[in-house]
Design a protein around this nucleic acid. Structure first.
Lengths: 343, 343
DNA sequence: AAGAAAGATTGAATCGGTTCAGAAGTTTTC
DNA sequence: GAAAACTTCTGAACCGATTCAATCTTTCTT
């Protein structure tokens, strides 16, 4: 089935392409009767102008940028997107959001789609193995709009705006140690995320800077999707007797923390009385969790704003700017899910 | 500053456009030395291929649809978007998300942007006054890709997938009446939303179908943005003496319900002991609200899926399909924020 | 060393619109 | 009633890539 073009309309209406174009663009240099006739023919033919052709001729005026996040349903990412949006809007850019849903195929598809649509630049929360892919895309297949990464992926030479994950976890662990906890455990995230690595790293570091000893079994991989984390938490505690329980858990993120909270409730383990919980991210709902969550706040809107600022600076610069890497500070937010231990 | 084209590269590298194109597309019909040289020149010139031109020539292969939601940070909309995404993916379409942030300008900009990018179709949660605008855009300015609306806007002749808002509120009110409540109030949403109208309508209807009398002051307009609803709730109760308090509030949506819950806590009004609260939407966090929320569930993912299904059916049909209007059923979810009244 | 085969490059046509100088037709002016 | 001034329309050129038949080079055969 062939596409109906402006030419088909022109032929059928007995006018020139130019006239049809004038009708489409509502130029008033067209006699009303002619216009109505052309409009009529367009309707008959189900004509639909192809924006891309118009855009090519007009030099692709519209200023738009894209963001690829990992999950539209996780407020952490939507908050970042809001930050991006605010800054982008103030500079006259429109933001298109794509969600990779933690799927590398999608990530790749979207970065190509952005190129096909001639987006001016993109902000990407990369999946870890995806990075090599992305670099590959950008290097070889010439999908080379400016971009900013939201994770500090090792090895890639690119603009990055992120938080210092290692520091964040350290803050959590240090705080718990200050509260007198000694049996601290880290419930780690999905192995596919670079965040997971960095956070484990930070956990280790916190111990090496303290007098407490680190053991491998303090790292428990339970994922971050609700069902998965919930199930793994249940399993973890069912394998242990009560006196083997840790007194504190440092979570991968707040989403995971909620699943843990739910599982603990089911197991009749009280928070913070029996176990203290520290989250990560401080999503907007963390404050209303069944137990309001002590967590490490990542400045989500600011991340978005800074990333947008950096991206747009790169887009609008005539020369190639040197790569930048900005790490934002996190902040410990103490709520009700942690308590001090008195010996 | 002129855009660098394939021609500039060709000239500078002393080859033809065809060769440069071959290099870009990594066709192996190019001698390695030539390729390296061209690549080098491209780097020097900061050449970046224009996807739009390529796309025009290739007949815009990529299948993508868009969705315009009102707020990326409200889980109700992201859940719908997920539903759309799932269905779209299963049919090979990519989903681009845009957030109008309740701003009509944005809504308009995005619908035009989608046209410029030659998106195949769109799903739109329209702002009420925006509807006339949208219709205008689609009728006159020829931005006429197929689209599906997520609200049943009166007057517009378009595909709609939505819930029956009036029914939903009726369910809430009936339930409260069955629980023995007589002093029921509706905290209405922002006047700019058609949802607001329909919900007020449903509230009225529920009374006219009962033995209880309706009074205008049972409708209290407090908005849905957190700060606004919170403040208005505080103000509402401060104006009243305790014996004038309603015994139940039907909320505009769950976001608003959370603000109300927060305000009531501040006022030391207990839920559900002093006042019962019924939300609307059943966003995923409603179950973990400080008081787990009794609410009317809108089948969010299903809304998304059905909308996507309808949209894609329209996109892929060769003839113009008749307009469809599907209203999905809601469901009362009873949790802890409501109680029965014993006289 | 000539002819054939394989490899590399060219360039005109193409995608579907927009633009604008100028042609054709119509109305106003004096 | 001829010139001037409008009003409508036309159609060739253009936007920036891709494609592919035709041509030019190089390598291989015998």
């Amino acid at each position: 089935m062939k596409r109906i073009t402006i030419e088909d309309v022109a032929r059928r209406a007995g006018v020139s392409k130019g006239t049809v174009s004038a009708v489409i663009n509502a130029r008033n240099s067209v006699k009303p009767e002619t216009r109505d006739h052309v409009l009529e023919v367009m309707k008959q033919l189900h004509f639909r102008p192809q924006g891309i052709a118009r855009n090519l001729r007009n030099g692709n005026q519209d200023k738009s940028i894209g963001i690829i996040i990992k999950d539209v349903n996780y407020p952490f990412y939507t908050a970042i997107a809001s930050g991006v949006r605010d800054y982008a809007n103030s500079k006259g850019y429109s933001l298109l959001i794509a969600s990779s849903e933690n799927n590398q195929q999608s990530e790749k598809r979207f970065s190509q789609l952005f190129a096909a649509k001639d987006i001016k630049g993109a902000i990407i929360a990369p999946l870890v193995e995806g990075t090599a892919e992305i670099e590959h895309l950008f290097k070889l297949k010439m999908i080379n709009y400016p971009f900013v990464l939201l994770e500090d992926v090792s090895g890639i030479q690119a603009n990055v705006v992120a938080i210092d994950n290692s520091q964040a976890i350290k803050k959590a662990v240090k705080y718990l140690m200050d509260c007198g906890h000694t049996r601290i455990v880290h419930f780690a995230g999905p192995p596919s995320s670079s965040h997971t690595e960095e956070r484990i790293e930070g956990f280790r570091h916190a111990f090496s800077e303290s007098t407490l000893a680190f053991h491998e079994d303090m790292i428990v991989s339970i994922g971050s999707r609700h069902e998965e984390s919930y199930g793994n938490t249940l399993a973890y505690f069912k394998k242990k007797s009560r006196n083997e329980y840790p007194t504190a858990i440092v979570c991968f993120n707040d989403q995971q923390a909620l699943a843990i909270l739910t599982a603990l409730k089911e197991l009749a383990i009280r928070v913070p009385d029996d176990i203290s919980i520290v989250g990560n991210d401080d999503i907007s709902y963390a404050r209303i969790y069944p137990v309001p969550l002590t967590t490490i706040r990542a400045p989500q809107r600011e991340i978005g704003q800074r990333a947008a600022e950096l991206l747009i600076r790169n887009i609008e610069s005539s020369k190639l700017l040197p790569v930048e890497r900005v790490l934002l500070e996190t902040e410990l937010i103490v709520r009700d899910s942690t308590r001090t231990i008195t010996r």
